[in-house]
Computed example of a mutant assay.
Amino acid sequence: MELPQNPFKAALTGEPRYGCWAGFGTAYASEILATVGFDWMLIDGEHAPNPIPAVLSQLQAVAPYKTAPVVRAVNHDPALIKQLLDIGTQTLMVPMVDTAAQAQALVEATRYPPHGIRGVGGGLTRATRWDAIDDYQARAHEELCLIVQVESRRGIENVEAIAAVEGVDGVFVGPADLSTSVGRAGQPNHEEVQRMIRHAFDSIKAAGKAAGILAPAEDNAKRYAEWGFDFIAVGIDISLMRQAALETLARYKADTKVPTGASSY
């Protein structure tokens, strides 16, 4: 059996790729999302109730569809990263990366020795198709895509060095955490925050890496697409459901308060 191609990595060709956060933590909801037509979706293990078995079931559920899955780990734990890779994660996003040393450690967590510290699961793992992929250990890195998140003042200060780390394929900017870290909570469009996002974007592209961002508000998403961001999350499934539910209820109950738009993040 051939090593499966990573559809997310293959799609990073310079055009904006639009995705959606999957936060319900169930395969049923993620499969529905995969039928819509988003280029990619994030199975969120940081802020959603997604332990390893839940991530596995969602990877299996969305596998037949064109929407490429990205899995976000909750932290930098190499043991957790090993498990996520072993169940078949090919594109991994890791939050709160502040230094090049942290980024380098994450690269090593995704590589087998002598280039890293990933443990060998062999026939026990879905990633190897239970030993059906003969050269998996030698070639796994070719189809892995590591995305590190820069979402703090310190991360922005070190973004050039982070983006330059070999083995980092993309850098994702987190506007909510970034704005909060600089004392502008809930204000990702503040000029100070926007300057930092622009600096991050320019640094990422100068390093030849893919740049991503979360932008549920339409104006923000369009602006970031014009800048040249490679992958943009334009929705969050939980927020979309809540918004639609409120709009439906408002047709029948006049006192229903409906938000005027998507969260700015």
Rank of each mutant, 00 (worst) to 15 (best):
G183Y: 01
W40K: 04
A217N: 12
F38G: 06
Q243V: 04
E192R: 07
I204R: 06
N189Y: 02
G123N: 07
V159S: 00
A27T: 11
V97S: 05
F172T: 03
N50M: 12
I43A: 12
C20I: 02
D230P: 10
P175N: 06
V36A: 06
I87W: 07
R126L: 05
M93R: 11
F8C: 02
N220D: 14
A250E: 11
D169V: 07
P78Y: 12
K82F: 06
G88S: 02
Y224P: 02
I238P: 00
D169C: 10
D39H: 11
F201N: 04
A163Q: 10
A63C: 11
P49S: 14
Q5D: 13
A105K: 11
A163K: 02
D77P: 03
P51W: 00
D169G: 15
D237V: 01
Q58F: 09
I52N: 06
A127W: 07
S181F: 13
F8M: 09
A211D: 07
V168R: 04
Q102R: 01
V74A: 15
V62P: 00
N6I: 13
G261P: 01
D177P: 07
I162F: 01
G37D: 04
P7R: 12
K82H: 02
P95N: 12
V148R: 03
R184E: 05
A207H: 13
G208P: 13
V94K: 03
A207V: 02
V107A: 15
E226N: 03
P78C: 00
P175M: 08
H47F: 03
F38Y: 15
T99G: 03
E151W: 10
W130F: 15
V165E: 08
Q102E: 15
E142K: 11
A54V: 15
T180R: 08
A215D: 01
T260L: 13
D169A: 15
